[in-house]
Simulated scan of single mutants.
Amino acid sequence: MKVLMVITGLGMGGAEHVVTNLADELVTLGHTVKIAYLTGDVIVSPKSHDIELISIGMNSPKDFVKAYFKLRSVVNEFKPDVIHSHMFHSNIISRLLRLTISVPKIVSSSHNTHEGGRLRMLAYRSTYKLADISTNVSQEAVDTLVEKGAVKSGRMISVVNGIDINQFYFDKDARKNKRIELDIVNQKVVLAVGRLNHQKDYQNLLNSIFLLKKQRYDFKFLIAGDGPLKEELMLLLNKLEIAEFVEFLGIRRDIPALMSASDLFVLSSAWEGFGLVVAEAMACECVVVATDCGGVREVVGSEGFLVEPNNNILLAQALNKALDLSDDERSSIGAAARTRIINHYSLSANVDAYLKLYA
């Protein structure tokens, strides 16, 4: 089978990792895969050298027509059996291909509960019939987009993300080496991973650290990621006088090792579709403290701490409680968390679900 993945960009993010992991698995199974990305530089890429990455060159809305015809040219040349599009802009442009060329099958995947405002929902609603099926990464995300009118009930289904448990696992040696590298001695380490943007709500996290600091000093927060709010967050960090408790690591390519080095993982998001990094942290046996948004509750189950979004008081309380866990308690919760990911969110199950849609 020939599959063309179309994604808005290949920057650092959960959806980008999902797409590249899916592409790698499909190639391993004998399928031919190409990835077309609309804009930006390639930061996340597949492992397989057999997967061609094609830049469509849509750097602004004025490039839409040019990008449309370039993508159409890619489709005409590759002749895929399936176009699998991911994220808003790619979903729309891929659907519109059917107005001018024949495409055997289009699977249109969203990756969030929040895909934009009214105009985007109108664009989705006006084009959803051009896709054979639409998917989202949790039932909560599906229900939210149906409620917003992006798609009619029954035309979008949940396909949960899959985790590569052979990449994400607890590594005792990595924990030791990474803590030495980061000069961690006796502190308890709390890790956060994600773009520095409004969705991840790091303002909420920094304010919770300010409250936590009033109760204890035995912790260090590591934040891996970059984004448009970095300068604003650094100003808030200094204003709250918590710089000694927080280190911004920038973009990292050693996330599994960082998770092994950490005692807790925190997600402070205002909204999510699935919460891929939460599942990855659980696979690494991290105790998770997360905001109850999107599909995060579905992922965490009873194997972690959930608090309502946008509430730094409750987040600080949950972090304090999690930091109070004994080593045995933390190990027990971490082991149960990994078992949950293996049982419910394996990469192979994710690939199988999409292959059924491709058929």
Rank of each mutant, 00 (worst) to 15 (best):
K2F: 15
K2W: 08
V3N: 09
M5E: 11
V6Y: 00
I7W: 05
T8R: 02
G11T: 10
M12P: 06
E16S: 09
V18P: 05
V18K: 04
V18W: 03
L22K: 01
E25F: 01
E25P: 04
E25L: 06
L26I: 13
V27N: 15
G30M: 15
H31T: 08
A36R: 02
T39K: 11
V42H: 09
S45M: 07
S45F: 14
S48A: 10
H49Q: 15
H49L: 08
I51C: 11
L53T: 12
G57R: 12
G57Q: 11
K62D: 06
D63G: 09
F69R: 14
K70R: 14
S73Q: 13
S73H: 10
P80M: 04
D81T: 09
D81P: 08
V82G: 02
T100Q: 07
K105M: 08
H111K: 08
N112W: 01
N112S: 14
G116T: 03
R125C: 05
L130I: 05
L130G: 03
D132G: 04
S134P: 07
T135H: 01
T135V: 04
N136Q: 02
V137I: 11
S138C: 07
V142M: 00
D143K: 10
L145D: 02
K148T: 05
K152H: 09
R155Q: 13
M156L: 00
S158E: 07
N161W: 13
N161R: 09
N161K: 14
G162W: 00
G162P: 01
Y169W: 11
D171W: 02
K172L: 13
R175G: 06
V185H: 11
Q187D: 14
K188I: 05
V190R: 00
L191E: 01
L191K: 00
V193N: 01
G194K: 04
L206V: 12
N207S: 08
N207I: 00
K213M: 08
A224G: 04
D226R: 10
P228M: 06
E231L: 07
L233I: 06
M234P: 03
E241I: 13
E241W: 10
I242L: 01
A243V: 12
V246G: 01
F265A: 03
F274K: 14
M282N: 02
V300N: 04
V300P: 02
F305V: 06
P309W: 00
I313M: 10
L314W: 06
A318I: 03
A318P: 02
K321G: 09
L325Q: 02
A335W: 05
A336R: 14
A337H: 01
T339G: 11
Y345S: 07
A359R: 13
